[in-house]
């Protein structure tokens, strides 16, 4: 219920600033009600790869996303976008395998973000561990368009945390650990797209377990508003 209040507040606070920028359409789209059914919602599952964990010194390297419609992952909607970096990929290139040479051919942050904003229309975003990704995303958007994004999102790590908490247990919450519990096989490679797809599968699994008679609502998935 704070979700709606906060969304309205953010909208009121920022919509003038968004006017005339590529973000305008986002601010003009209708509010997504938390009573909306899971199966009739369009989701954009997003994963970001960064050059490090510190927002101030590090930056986005790539984005991967895939859509969920009617409770099904739409394979053809999968995208993997590399972002042209001002600085080299740095320490995290060892983790993501993104080398400077492959980043060199990448698109500029602005055009990747504009593609993303287009896809976000009418969709609820999905992250696994949202706060970090959102912080980097907002920083990049503000740098490029001088205004933050406004969107609704759910966090599969949050969903899992609540589920485990209800069972009175403590368990690992990393993506692969969560997937294990739903019998989802571990993914071979780690990049933004593979992780977005893995997160999407995890969400379907969580929804399947939370669902009763196709009545699962967004409020059951603790939908929130971006900050």
């Amino acid at each position: 219920m704070f979700y709606k209040l906060y969304y309205k507040f953010q909208h009121w606070r920022l919509h003038k600033k968004a006017g005339g920028t590529p973000l305008q359409a986002l601010y003009e789209q209708p509010f997504i009600n938390s009573f909306q059914l899971f199966t009739s919602t369009r989701f954009l599952v997003l994963d970001c790869e960064m050059s490090g964990l510190d927002v101030k010194s590090c930056q986005l390297l790539s984005l991967g996303w895939v859509m969920i419609e009617h409770g099904r992952i739409v394979n053809v909607s999968a995208r993997h976008q590399l972002i042209h970096a001002d600085r080299g990929a740095g320490e995290s290139s060892r983790i993501h395998g993104l080398l400077d040479s492959s980043l060199a051919g990448a698109t500029s942050a602005a055009s990747v973000l504009m593609l993303l904003i287009k896809q976000m229309q009418g969709a609820v975003l999905v992250f696994h561990h949202a706060p970090l990704d959102i912080r980097f995303l907002q920083k990049a958007v503000i740098e490029n368009f001088r205004c933050p994004l406004l969107f609704s999102y759910i966090d599969t790590m949050d969903i899992e945390k609540r589920r485990i908490h209800l069972q009175g247990k403590t368990m690992g919450l990393r993506l692969s650990q969560c997937r294990d519990r739903y019998g989802l096989i571990s993914i071979q490679q780690h990049n933004a797209l593979a992780d977005a797809q893995a997160t999407a599968e995890l969400l379907l699994a969580q929804a399947s377990y939370l669902d009763k008679e196709h009545k699962l609502k967004l409020s059951d998935l603790s939908i929130r508003c971006s900050r």
Partner: peptide, 14 residues
């Protein structure tokens, strides 16, 4: 074929 694939999940008993 792969462009026309939709991925879904279902729990036991469904």
């Amino acid at each position: 074929a792969s462009a026309n694939i939709y991925v879904a999940f279902s729990k036991p008993g469904n």
